[in-house]
Write a protein that binds this DNA or RNA. Structure first.
Length: 825
RNA sequence: GCCGAAGUGGCGGAAUUGGCAGACGCAGCGGACUCAAAAUCCGCCGCCGUCAAAAGCGUGUGGGUUCGAGUCCCACCUUCGGCACCA
């Protein structure tokens, strides 16, 4: 063993050995319990960033810790390698996306190895390779056969920056999630996955996810946006048409004083065509449609409406009320029509005041009589029904059910659950994605590509147009084909799939990464699933995590897997910040992992990133604190190296300890309390920062012992424990030291140290003495002393009795082995 | 507006069940070693106060429960995140 800690030599030596010996390969085995530890796989942008380092360091500690606990640990990695940056690079530098991606993967692969991560590299998956996307396409076909993939014309989100449509989940405050361009609306024929069919299960099963942060579950809950209410039908007075509204307040139907339609509602044109209102209404509709999505959905927007001259009949009381169109009614939500009840809805109240629409109170607080003229806002709380025929006198909660039942009997209403969640738009007008395996035939329509013809391969030699449009559309050799049904000339779908489709099932592919008959064998997926611990950034709380849950449920329904949730436990890590903001090129505050590893080694980089903050919290990068971690590793190195050198390169513990002195007992107690603390911090709480600080305390104790203690068995035990506890955090240096201590097998194949309960027992304890809750003295007492005895002893202490003279002792509280509080008047 | 998380020294953070607030680390200060420096080892390090001590104050604010509150309850403030003319 070197006297100096030479991280560069040590790390490359062990990394090579781990690769050569395939150290981290796993197979299914019944002899051990399984554990599936997964980190969100990276997009191969070209270089690892600190967020990756954090993500993979956390995962690696968990995987190594579980391995040392006797689990059969699956810890895989791969590449989420379809997507826009490759295509943009292709347009800019005229390199094929496949080449650019391959080079990036090679470089990042090297960087991952330099971190000393315990991946089973035999299971590496790359989503942009045909051997993977063949099965993405195959899964699309399964969805298609189940009726869960369909094409429809719809008003969709178009990102002018990315030249493609986006899913709702990819639009953030009206802008593109990737490039921040303002999203436009376009009417296009697009492919969708019917995620709304699973809305209820996706919502309900959130309850099963006890190992998920509430934050993420709440975000998904909000996104799904379930709301219970009723559909109510209003007949149009002038025609035979019926307007259906969705409302969460069917109890207020007797108070309806108008109806508002979204400008896009198809009935609008029908009802005004040929009337004298037609021009005015069309102008209004045009004005609304010219607003951007952001303007239109802003809460500050002035609510405007316009009566269109037609009327509806209230099914509850037969009243005839006017139909308006309003700029605040969203066609995509509910039925695109709302009933206006000014007295019991804030928005309706101000809208009605503005346009002088009538108001009727139908719910009021018990014992109070509300009058519309004196109301200053809508009454939205619970109350008693009035002006509502046979429902008068009921509570409005009772009336909700009763009125819907009554309307249902009349065939004019029913209960309805509404969701905010929209179907998942998966078409992308881009090249670098998995082609959607559909063929369009003039005779047979849209025909799925037969399974045996998969994969639909992306062409190799591609000329990108500067417009950014997908070149597939213009490549006849790709687009032209024959109909699999009738054999006539036909055209392929040239849209590709959203990359989130590829990443919705990769965790299943890892369980059987090279299967060329199926996406994965069921028995292998069943052996490894669920993912026991999933780790990644909170930015995927909705998109990826919702889609992956949806996929798992569909795959369960078609019998491909047995689980209905993919990720049992979820850890959402915080961001890595520098000078208070996220590291980014534009801010110029990036710290390169490669540089840090070059300067201090991977062990230091890993240790710092785990020590600086608990994993969920944002982490402020601090160069000096990194050095502190480097110093700590050196401190361990010196301690172990010196001991080993003075013991002929042997530090293998240990027989019986015999009778030990105080310093020896203290170190043994420290050693074993450290095992206990680190085991809880790593295994239960994932608080790696406090686990590391506990180990630091142990090292401090060992330095002290070196001056005071003289039993070398005790020191040897502490050293061996220290190395084992550090092994998951700093795998290289611990391996080197382990060998230097005379061991011949790998530290990473050792069993996690166990706590010797006897060593934990202390003979003495420090008891705090308080007077009226303020600390006045401390005293060392034998453990488990009788309370009354403690009380007498404490009251007799000079310092205490002095302060008690002339005071009236009201009560003495004794907490055994901890504290005495004397209450005086 | 609704939902969620957080607020502790100069800084990152700790306090797991209501029981010594500030573990551990960074920065800072002092000492040892050295011709000197670096490295290393040892010590100090909330505020106020003092020669030194004692006393006092102190976990966003204001109340409350309790022998005892960073921790529990009520009200509020601030920051961050999500959702939002959702009918």
């Amino acid at each position: 063993m070197n006297e100096r800690y030479d991280y560069a030599e040590i790390e490359s030596k062990w990394q090579k050995k781990w690769v050569d010996e395939n150290t981290h390969r796993v197979t299914e085995s019944d002899s051990k319990p399984k554990y599936y530890c997964l980190e969100m796989f990276p997009y191969p942008s070209g270089n690892l960033h600190m967020g990756h380092v954090r993500n993979y360091s956390i995962g690696d500690v968990i995987a190594r810790y579980k391995t040392m606990h006797g689990f059969n640990v699956l810890h895989p990695i791969g590449w989420d390698s379809f997507g826009l940056p490759a295509e943009n690079a292709a347009i800019k530098h005229n390199t094929p996306p496949a080449k650019w991606t391959k080079e990036n993967i090679a470089n990042m692969n090297r960087q991952l190895h330099a971190m000393g991560l315990s991946y089973d590299w035999d299971r590496e998956v790359t989503t942009c390779l045909p051997e993977y996307y063949k099965w993405t396409q195959w899964l699309f076909l399964q969805f298609y056969n189940k009726g869960l993939a369909y094409k429809k014309g719809a008003s969709v989100n178009w990102c002018p920056g990315c030249h493609t449509v986006l899913a709702n989940e990819q639009v953030v405050e009206g802008a593109c999630e990737r490039c921040d361009s303002i999203v436009e609306k376009k009417s296009l024929e697009q492919w969708f996955f019917k995620i709304t069919d699973y809305a209820d299960r996706l919502l309900e099963d959130l309850d099963k996810l006890e190992g998920w942060p509430t934050k993420v579950k709440t975000m998904q809950e909000n996104w799904i946006g379930r709301s219970e209410g009723a559909l109510i039908q209003f007949k149009v007075q002038e025609t035979d048409d019926v307007v259906e509204v969705f409302t969460t307040r069917p109890d207020t139907v007797f108070g309806v004083s108008y109806m508002v339609l979204a400008p896009e509602h198809p009935l609008v044109e029908k009802l005004i065509d040929g009337t004298d209102k037609a021009e005015e209404v069309r102008a209004f509709v045009k004005k609304v449609q010219q607003m951007t999505e952001v303007e239109r959905s802003s809460t500050e927007m002035e609510k405007e409406g316009l009566a269109i001259g037609a009327h509806v009949i209230n099914p509850a009381n037969g009243q005839v009320v006017p139909i308006l169109i309003g700029n605040y009614v969203i066609y995509e939500y509910g039925t695109g029509a709302v009933m206006g009840v000014p007295t019991h809805d804030e928005r309706d109240f101000f809208f009605a005041r503005k346009y002088n629409l009538p108001m009727t109170v139908v719910v009021q607080p018990e014992g109070v009589s509300l009058t519309p003229e004196t109301m200053e806002g809508a009454y939205t709380a619970e109350g008693i029904m009035v002006n509502s025929g046979q429902f008068d006198g009921m509570t409005n909660t009772e009336a909700k059910k009763a009125i819907v039942a009554w309307l249902e009997e009349k065939g004019q209403g029913k209960l309805k659950v509404n969701y905010r969640l929209r179907d998942w738009l998966i078409s992308r007008q881009r090249f670098w994605g998995a082609p959607i395996p559909i063929i369009y035939c003039d005779h047979c329509g849209a025909v799925p590509v037969p399974e045996e013809q998969l994969p639909v391969l992306l062409p190799q030699d591609v000329n990108f147009k500067p417009s950014g449009e997908s070149p597939l559309k213009y490549m006849d050799e790709f687009a032209q084909t024959t109909c699999p049904v009738c054999g006539a000339p036909a055209r392929r779908e040239t849209d590709t799939m959203d990359t989130f489709v590829c990443s919705s099932w990769y965790y299943l592919r890892y369980t059987d990464a090279h299967n060329d008959q199926k996406p994965f064998a069921k028995d292998k997926a069943d052996y490894w699933m669920n993912v026991d611990q999933y780790i990644g950034g909170v930015e995927h709380a909705i998109l990826h995590l919702l889609y992956a849950r949806f996929f798992t449920k569909v795959l369960k329904d078609i019998g491909l897997v047995s689980v209905d949730e993919p990720f049992k436990n979820l850890l959402t890590q915080g961001m890595v910040l520098k000078e208070g903001s996220k590291m980014s090129k534009s801010k110029g505050n990036i710290v390169s992992p490669e540089e840090i590893i070059g300067k201090y080694g991977a062990d230091t980089a890993r240790l710092f990133i785990l020590f600086a903050a608990p994993p969920e919290r944002d982490l402020e990068w601090n160069d000096q604190a990194v050095e502190g971690c480097y110093r700590f590793i050196n401190r361990i190195w010196r301690l172990v190296e010196e001991f080993s050198r003075s013991h002929d390169g042997k530090c293998v513990a240990y027989g019986e300890f015999g009778d030990l002195g105080k310093a020896e007992k203290d170190l043994r107690r420290l050693t074993h309390t450290t095992i206990k603390r680190v085991s809880e911090d790593v295994g239960v709480r994932f608080n790696f920062n406090t686990a590391i600080s506990a180990i630091m305390e142990l090292v401090n104790g060992m330095y002290q012992y070196r001056e005071q203690g003289n039993n070398e068995q005790v020191m040897a035990e502490a050293i061996e424990t220290l190395i084992l506890l550090m092994a998951p955090f700093t795998p290289h240096v611990t391996e080197e030291l382990w060998q230097g201590m005379g061991h011949t097998d790998s530290v990473h194949h050792q069993t996690w140290p166990t706590v010797d309960e006897k060593a934990l027992i202390a003979e003495e304890t420090t008891v705090v003495i308080q007077i009226n809750g303020k600390v006045r003295d401390k005293i060392n007492l034998p453990m488990n002393m009788d309370s009354k005895e403690v009380e007498n002893l404490v009251l007799a202490l000079p310092k205490i009795s002095e302060q008690l003279t002339g005071k009236d002792i009201k009560k003495v509280v004794v907490i055994p082995n901890k504290l005495v509080n004397i209450v005086v008047g």
